[in-house]
């Protein structure tokens, strides 16, 4: 429990990142860790970039992760994965949802969406895992559960017991969506070998 775990969730407003980071930090707290998380609210619903930093361990001071110290980057969108990649430590993990959401600058032609993001990431970082969270969500019957699929994948790499994840997700998602969330969580988890 001595070691501090540093996590960053990144993506685009509307992808359920803030809910996912709520679940992770709540789960970490229930597992007995000291926890801090920090994020920027406000513009998240307007399609801007969204980042949430979470740190847990025995004693946490700063709520912000320092560049090069991030153990796990959970990226809900490819371009945002690239944008935040330099936070990840050499032996850190990156989980990337294979989704492309064009920013307004690309839509209106003032910028180009970068090519070969997947290669750029894998050439630099040892452990990059790609998942199709949207497909998983569709398969589990609720398109809105892509963020839970990401959580499933992340859970495999974090020091938090499985039953706590299940409890917290049950508490945090709407009653009628519990089943689909559980399916998405499991499918996300199964992707990580």
């Amino acid at each position: 429990m001595d070691k501090v775990t540093n996590l960053i969730l990144t993506g685009v407003g509307g992808q359920g990142i803030l809910t996912a980071s709520e679940i992770i930090s709540e789960a970490a707290a229930q597992a007995g860790h000291d926890v801090k998380k920090s994020e920027i609210h406000g513009m998240s619903q307007r399609g801007g970039s969204v980042n949430s930093h979470i740190r847990f361990g025995e004693k946490i001071y700063s709520p912000l992760v320092i560049k090069g110290e991030c153990d796990l980057l959970l990226a809900f969108e490819k371009l945002e994965a690239l944008r935040m990649a330099d936070f990840v430590k050499e032996d850190g993990n990156i989980i990337v949802n294979r989704q492309q959401i064009n920013p307004s600058t690309v839509i209106n032609g003032t910028a180009k969406y970068p090519e070969n993001i997947e290669d750029k990431l894998t050439s630099k970082y040892k452990s990059v895992i790609f998942i199709d969270a949207l497909n998983i969500a569709k398969e589990s019957g609720n398109i809105r559960t892509a963020n839970t699929a990401m959580l499933g994948a992340a859970s495999k790499l974090l020091n938090i017991p499985a039953d706590i994840w299940i409890d917290v997700i049950r508490m945090r998602v709407p009653e009628r969506a519990i089943e689909a969330n559980m399916k998405s969580f499991q499918m996300g988890l199964d992707i990580i070998k």
Binding site: V12, R46, L79, P103, V106
Partner: peptide, 20 residues
């Protein structure tokens, strides 16, 4: 003291918020 890694300049397209 902690040593942060220097950031890389990547010149990625910005993602400003937009009206819904």
């Amino acid at each position: 003291i902690i040593h942060p890694t220097p950031s890389e300049k990547m010149n990625l397209p910005a993602r400003p918020p937009a009206m819904c």
